[in-house]
């Protein structure tokens, strides 16, 4: 994980503070609309982003439909849609 990655992570935490509440339970991935068609797994994406493994993340994130199901099931109230949009913005820059 290099400096750019940690800077990006810090930015994400700043704009989506609820991100730090995630306990990795995977409920979001289990219900995900996109996940029913593909390998898309929002919890794995969190982990990869945290570790700076961002090579294919942008592409993976593109399959989210922003339907909001994940947010409704998250027991910790993580603002997942905001997280996804923000990650996409950060990875595009």
């Amino acid at each position: 994980m290099d400096a750019a990655d940690s800077a990006r992570r810090a930015q994400l935490l700043a704009s989506v503070p609820s991100y730090r509440l995630c306990i990795g339970c995977g409920a979001c991935s289990a219900t995900c609309s996109a996940g029913q068609f593909t390998q898309f797994n929002i919890r794995r994406i969190h982990t990869a982003f945290n570790c700076g493994q961002t090579d294919t993340l942008a592409e993976q994130l593109d399959s989210c439909m922003l339907c909001g199901k994940c947010m409704l099931v998250c027991p910790r109230g993580v603002n997942l849609r905001s997280l996804i949009i923000r990650m996409r913005q950060l990875l595009a820059n």
Binding site: S33, Q36, F37, M65, L66, C67, G68, R81, I85
Partner: peptide, 15 residues
């Protein structure tokens, strides 16, 4: 079985 979202949530966010 599986839903394709109607697209309105994306539209509302400007995509």
């Amino acid at each position: 079985e599986r839903t394709i979202c109607c697209g309105r949530p994306l539209l509302q966010q400007g995509f």
